[in-house]
Every structure is written in C-alpha cells, then in structure tokens.
Write a protein that binds this DNA or RNA. Structure first.
Length: 382
RNA sequence: GCGACUAUAGUUCAAUGGUAGAACACUGGUUUGUGGUACCAGCUACGAGGGUUCGAUUCCCUCUAGUCGCC
C-alpha cells in the first residue's frame, strides 16, 4: 500500500508497504535480472540504502525455473535479499530478446496472439508460450513483492495502428492478469499479499496514451507503470508523455517509469510526480568503466536542470589520462571506491580486467544514484 | 663451419608483380522494463642494400637477425 506523506507542487514523497517491508519513495531500483546484482551482494546494496531490487520474470522462468525458486523458499531466500522485490513481467524481454533469437536461429523470435505470446529462447532456441495468467503465476511462484502485468511493448518508431493494437491487447491482458491475481490471492492476508501494477502503453501518441491510462486505471491496480519509454524514443518525448498520462493516475497510488534513466531524466520525472524508477545504466555502464560523478561546481547538489545538466558528469575511467591520476574519483562520494582508492588504481583494474573493477564501479555508480534520489526526497523549504 | 627454413602492425598470422588484411593489444566512443566476457570507430607494418622490371612487399643476389638440423 502506498502512503503519500508530502507533496510539493507535483513532486511526491511517500512510502510503499510491501509484504517484505517499507520502501521510501521516490526510489530507484538496482537491477538483479537473474536473481543477482552483478558483482554485488544484497547486504552491500542494503548498506548503500536500497530497499527494493528489480528481477526478471522472463529470465528466472527459463533459468532456473519458477517452480525451483518456489521449492527453495522463494526468491528472497534464494538470493539472500530481505528487502522487497519487483519483477518485470517479461513483456519487454519477449520482444527485445526475441530479436536476438531471430538473429541467432534465423527464426521469427516472437509471435503475438490475442491469447499470449509465443517466443524463442535466444540461448537454446527452445519455444515457449507466455500468457497473462502464466506471467502472474510465475511471479507468484517466485514470491515477488510487486507483480507487473504482462504488456505489449511496441517498438519505436511504430505506426499509430501498431500502437493502437498494442495498447488494446495490453488492456485485455491487464484485465486477465487482474482477474487471475484476485482469484489466486483472495485467501491471503493483506500483509502476505503482493502488489499488482498495471502498465500504460500508447507509444508517442497523445490520444492513445490518455486512452491507455484511463483503461488501465479503470481496471484498478496497486500502482501504475508507464511503459514503452525506454525503447529508443527521443528524450524530448518523455516530458510530453508524462504530462499526458500523470493527470489520469490516482494520487494515492505509486507511479513507476519503467527502464529509466539518466540522472537528469530521473530528476525531471520526480519533479513531474513519478515515484519509481529502474535502469541498467549505473550498473552496466559502471562495468564498462563509465563513472557518474558530481561536478565540481555542484558541491554534490542538484544545482540546475537543463538539457545539458551540469550537476554531474561521467568519466570513462579507462582513459589513458587517468593512468597517473592519484586523486579520488569523486570527493563528494563516500562509496568504498572513493573512500579507499585512486583513479589510477581503478583504471589499472579495468586495464588488466580484474573483476574487482566492475565491483567497485558498480558500488560507486549505485551510490551516486542513491545519493541523487536521497537529495530528491529532501523537502526544499523555499 | 655447412645446410634448410623464416623475416609483413606492439604481438600472432594472412594476401599480393600494380604500395597490404585479420585477430588480440592500444586509443576514443556507445550502452535507458541488463548485454558480467557487448557494440562502434580509429591508430600502427612489408629487416637492410643491390639487381631484373614501366612498376618489387612479392622474382633474383648479398648482408643482417632468428629457428631447426648436421659436423
């Protein structure tokens, strides 16, 4: 359940109670797709301050299997994470990974029908079928705290007709998810019950986005996600899409912007009234040597938002100019990397492919993202 | 000392009588409901000297260096 504690213009500060605990909003979710935060232990993530991680229905269903996770005592126990877990439904992955299956096996990776979606595992070529009911059941088996409905994520760009069709099917599936979820959880006590979120689609078309928002809200969910904004749309569209959709979403339910984003996108979206985010950027880019740092002028604060945000910068720590740079990576950061090591040291680790490099970089970037959110939670008395 | 073979990018290897490709390395960049080893781009080479030829990295000779074999 969501409690709105305070709002400031459109920005919201609150908390979500899940069956595993309380999560302060707004928040950012680190991504643990296959039941692991790459390089990191759950306790380290918790120490940074994170209370909720995102895992993936699609990946866990195929490997090791939701039944196996259920047998093990649920994903929390399996991966030793006592915070909350949100699982993405697999709607997005069926399409993004279906393309890879096509590449690899020369078959059509995805076949959509009104009943669900047939797709090919990009690793071994096996065929699978996912339906709205099955997506919910898998997430129930996994034991996730926040269940996402199976949706249809259209590519960008797409025709209005495609967008229309994907939103209609998303609505039909959302109803089926909700019905199945209610049936399966009717005997659970509130404190044992996961939350179910619906997803708004409609691509970059104003009327379709509004239509989708109305339909999804009509069905009634514990929270509302905005999907299809991290698949290649021009960034300028993001602000517009939020302005179209957010007025239709109930005040007393959390809003989740799926798959985003860059720090400035998160700041702008929180300002517009979004409560939840997830993104692979800090962890993935960290593993590839890009570090997020507060800019010198910012003194570690969010000082200005513009198209070219100047409160932070990224550095590619592998660059040769850091070879003999013995300064700390970011003097405003208190992560293990910035507390204990120099730029030259982590550059060296990347240069010689030490796994420790990815670990330190992940800790650093996730600390940056958490600090960013923490600053956004602060009430500004102006 | 004699014989054989080799010599091309930082490294390991290609191709070619009309000025050379790859892999890795190196240097940048990319990454938005994960892609841990991913993707894109760039830099860098014909051992030295002579000859044949319109033209030689390629064919011939000498030298140098290395590898192997024989005394």
């Amino acid at each position: 359940m969501f409690s709105l504690l305070e709002s400031q213009n459109k920005k919201r500060i609150g908390k979500i109670q899940t069956k595993s605990g309380v999560v302060a909003t707004p928040f950012f979710m680190p991504v643990a797709t296959k039941g692991a935060l790459k390089h990191l232990d759950g306790e380290e993530i918790k120490k940074i301050g994170y209370e909720l991680v995102l895992s993936n229905t699609y990946h866990l269903w195929l490997r090791p299997g939701d039944e196996l996770i259920k047998q093990s005592g649920g994903l929390h126990k399996f991966m030793n994470w006592d915070g909350s877990i949100l699982t993405d439904s697999g709607g997005f992955q069926v399409f993004s990974l279906g393309a890879r299956a096509t590449e690899r096996f020369g078959v059509c990776g995805v076949e959509l029908s009104s009943n669900g979606v047939h797709f090919v595992d990009p690793i071994n070529g096996k065929k699978h079928f996912l339906s709205p009911e099955k997506a919910v059941q898998i997430q129930l088996n996994i034991g996730t705290d926040i269940i996402m409905c199976l949706d249809v994520c259209p590519p960008y760009p797409c025709s209005k007709r495609e967008a229309q069709e994907s939103l209609e099917l998303t609505t039909v599936w959302a109803k089926r998810c909700k019905k199945y979820f209610d049936k399966k959880t009717k005997d659970l006590k509130t404190e044992e019950k996961p939350l179910l979120f619906g997803i708004v689609q409609g691509s970059t078309f104003e009327d379709l986005r509004k239509e989708s928002a109305k339909q999804i809200v009509d069905i009634g969910f514990d929270g509302y996600a905005i999907g299809g904004v991290a698949v290649g749309e021009p960034r300028e569209k993001l602000g517009e899409i939020l302005k179209w959709i957010l007025p239709f979403l109930p005040e007393n339910k959390p809003r989740y912007l799926m798959g985003l984003g860059k720090p400035e996108e998160i700041v702008a979206s929180v300002t517009e009234g979004v409560d939840m985010f997830d993104c692979v950027i800090p962890s993935r880019e960290g593993r590839h040597g890009r570090l997020f740092c507060w800019s010198e002028d910012s003194k570690g604060e969010i000082i200005e938002l513009s198209d070219k945000p100047d409160f932070y910068k990224t550095i590619n720590i592998g660059n040769s100019k850091f070879k003999k740079d013995f300064k700390v990576v970011d003097s405003h950061c208190s992560c293990p990397l910035c507390k204990n090591y120099s730029r030259a040291y982590i550059r060296h680790l990347f240069a010689v492919n030490e796994p420790f490099a990815g670990r330190l970089a992940s800790l650093h970037n996730l600390t940056f993202y958490f600090d960013l959110i923490k600053k956004l939670r602060k009430t500004k008395k102006q």
